[in-house]
Amino acid sequence: MNGHPSAGVPILQLGDVLISGLLNELDDKSAMAFTEELTQTISSTGARGVLIDISRLELIDSFVARMLTHLTTTARLLGARVIVAGMRPPVAITLVELGIELSGVETALSAEQGLTALGWHRAAPTRAGEAR
């Protein structure tokens, strides 16, 4: 691997919010690379909010859970608020049975609600009223 392994997970910037989405599966290396990359991006862009869409993630074991907690803490230290959005029901059930509460990690039902919570809509004043 080279010096900056990429997790292959795109990180988009919309105003002062970073948006990223994890795919259905995350191996350990990619998880660590993602943490690294996101932390770098937060610090270089000065982002105030980070939305991680996990609606496609089919499994969170203690390793990935740890990564999410770690990421949230790090981001907070850098001045950004992290919201993890769209956790699937089976994943949530498995996590609590595993004994993991992801304490300190903010959650939202969907990416849209997560963005709303991050106040992102205010940065898009011209947006026509959302359908539904």
Binding site: P89, A92, V96, G114
Partner: peptide, 12 residues
């Protein structure tokens, strides 16, 4: 408690 926690993890 577990149920409450799972609901929270989903963002509700």
């Amino acid at each position: 408690l577990q149920t409450v926690n799972a609901v929270r993890l989903m963002g509700a």
